[in-house]
Simulated assay, not measured.
Amino acid sequence: MAARDTLMYSEAHESADVVARQFAANEAVIAALAAALRAEPPRFIVTCARGSSDHAAAYAKYVFETRLGIATASASPSVTSVYAAEQQWQGALFLAISQSGKSPDLLRNAEAAKRAGARVVALVNVEDSPLAALADTVIPLHAGPERSVAATKSYIAALAAVLHLCARWLDDAELGDALQRLPQALRDNWSADWSPLCDSLADAHNLFVVGRGYGLGIALEAALKFKETCGLHAEAFSAAEVKHGPMALVGPDFPVLCFAQDDDTLDSTLAVAREFRGRGAQVLVAAPGLHGAGMLPVATGLPAMLTPLLIIQSFYRAASELSLRRGFNPDVPPHLNKVTETV
């Protein structure tokens, strides 16, 4: 089997079309929601999700807090679903993110949020799901059927939906224009050569994935995919947090993958990469416009907030290839199902 024969590869390849379709289909519902949020701003934002969807929520936190200035926190689903503890969410925006929209703990949290007086918004791929039925507003991901156990296009669709909502909420024409360029940028960036990742990690046992700010969510997502599809133990860290304890593990030949975007976090992320290289670590860096040994290509020309979508799409393509090279099938990871229904 070649990587292009896998569902993971082909579904990640669909991401540009998914994003374009989503932007067109969701304009009316997002414009209406944004108008309501401007008229009655939430006191704070609560996200609720698990797995890849929670990594999309981590991205949303940085988008909302940096652009909207509204405190955004991730709910611990078990607090409500297991401990049945009532939460003080009056006046909050409760953002539930899910592919299937049927996990029991997510549904219980959405129900609790409604009881507490929060506005419940669901970013969900299955429009007729139980979560969609519970929500005050549904923002469909429009990713279409995703048959690979590894989520790819639905994850990118969730990030795109967060950006769409932010642009309309702020009435930000510049961000809106950038979003219109995003699908073509995804198409153009698909052919970026990330083969050094496969060559470097074919025989690896452990690695760190490092990101910061907008890039932290995709670092978390990449670490999960390494475990899930490649049988490779990976842990994600902020470029700031990795210097508190975890860096003690980084020595000669230890693999480190860094994701960076061209904003105020770039210099600190590259400084960490240089420090690790100085210790003899095997460091790869994906950053827009940077080339040379140890660099993975990323297109330029989009705002830094959009760069993570380009990086994670290239990562998905490379991961599908690495999975096969390590003797796995990325579409059917051992012991996993497409839908995980946590109670």
Rank of each mutant, 00 (worst) to 15 (best):
I139P: 06
M295S: 10
L322A: 07
D177C: 15
R326S: 07
E341C: 13
V283I: 07
R317H: 14
C258N: 04
V272T: 09
C166D: 09
S74A: 15
T66W: 10
T137Q: 11
K61Q: 11
I218V: 15
W194S: 07
L159D: 00
L224G: 02
P333F: 02
D199F: 09
V63N: 11
L216W: 00
L290Q: 14
R4P: 11
L141D: 01
R181A: 12
R147L: 15
A192V: 07
W169Q: 06
A118R: 05
L186A: 03
K114E: 09
N125F: 02
P196T: 07
R108F: 15
N337K: 15
T269C: 05
A92F: 02
G301W: 03
A234W: 00
N337Y: 06
V149A: 10
H291G: 11
A113W: 08
P77Q: 07
L170C: 12
A319I: 11
L309G: 01
C166N: 11
V250I: 03
H55D: 06
I311M: 14
R43M: 11
A133N: 00
E111D: 11
R326C: 04
G51P: 06
L131R: 08
E174A: 12
A304G: 07
G280T: 06
A84D: 05
L163M: 11
L33N: 01
Q88F: 05
L134E: 02
L336G: 08
A49H: 05
L141N: 01
N109A: 09
Q99D: 06
Y59G: 01
Q313G: 10
L201E: 01
P288W: 01
L123N: 09
D177Q: 15
E11Q: 13
L201S: 01
D203R: 12
A240F: 13
A39F: 13
S154E: 03
L336A: 13
G91F: 06
A167S: 09
A32D: 10
H335V: 14
R168P: 04
A204E: 09
T307F: 06
R187E: 03
E111R: 15
S53F: 05
V18T: 08
L290C: 13
V149Y: 03
D263S: 09
K338A: 04
F226Y: 14
L159N: 02
P288Q: 00
A178V: 01
L290V: 15
A178Q: 00
R4V: 12
P246Y: 13
I139C: 02
P41Q: 11
D177K: 15
Q99E: 06
M247Q: 01
V126H: 11
G69S: 12
T300L: 12
L201F: 09
V138T: 04
S52K: 04
G91K: 03
E228W: 04
W190F: 13
A248R: 13
W190T: 07
L284V: 09
A34R: 08
V209W: 04
R274D: 14
A3C: 13
R168M: 08
I30W: 05
E221P: 05
